[in-house]
Simulated scan of single mutants.
Amino acid sequence: MKPWIKRSLFGFAGAAIVAGSLGGCAAHRWGGGDPAEFRAKMVERIGGKLDLDTVQKQKLATLADKLGAQRAAMRDAGGAGGTRTQFQSLFAGNKLDQSAASKMVDEKTAAVRTGSPDIIVAAADFFDNLNPAQQAKVREFMQRGGRRWRS
């Protein structure tokens, strides 16, 4: 497989996992309520765990907004009906609709490619403005695979 195809597929998979995780948490924790309310609660919770100041919280909120926009772009890529409906339609006939599958992957990949630079900049802006102790807490959280923060 060509390297750019692998990178695109890994990027797509990574973004889908992040978007799905955020969406799953939002639906599970707060009954699928307002995404902006969910992001605000997460910013406050993470801000409390990391002892963020006001500027750092603003940078985290910007990152959360960019991730939410990326999730919406992924969900909306490919038109109406949502990803689940699009995926189910691929298997509706006697054979897998390969051209529609390729088109769906291309649309989702394009959405990731378009939104990724903004997310990278926002993530770097947030992380680079943390002090070393806060950065260590973020690294520790990531090493545990994203499991809950410990006080």
Results as ranks from 00 to 15, higher is better:
39 R>T: 05
66 K>I: 13
82 G>C: 09
75 R>M: 10
132 P>G: 08
53 D>E: 03
132 P>Y: 08
122 A>H: 08
92 A>T: 10
86 Q>S: 11
45 R>L: 10
116 S>A: 15
10 F>Y: 15
127 F>D: 03
70 Q>K: 01
139 R>Y: 12
84 R>P: 02
126 F>P: 02
74 M>K: 07
88 Q>C: 12
41 K>H: 13
143 Q>K: 10
3 P>K: 10
114 T>G: 08
121 V>E: 12
30 W>I: 00
46 I>S: 03
28 H>L: 15
88 Q>T: 09
33 G>V: 00
74 M>R: 09
67 L>I: 05
3 P>I: 09
73 A>E: 10
13 A>Y: 15
40 A>Q: 10
54 T>Q: 08
68 G>I: 01
99 S>G: 02
36 A>F: 03
14 G>Y: 04
2 K>C: 06
73 A>L: 12
40 A>V: 05
98 Q>E: 13
126 F>Q: 03
135 Q>F: 08
2 K>D: 12
92 A>V: 03
76 D>K: 02
31 G>C: 03
82 G>E: 07
124 A>Q: 12
11 G>A: 14
49 K>N: 13
42 M>D: 14
131 N>M: 11
7 R>N: 14
31 G>D: 07
140 E>T: 15
102 S>E: 14
144 R>W: 06
9 L>M: 06
147 R>T: 14
149 W>H: 04
136 A>Y: 00
26 A>R: 13
9 L>D: 01
85 T>W: 08
110 A>D: 09
60 L>Y: 08
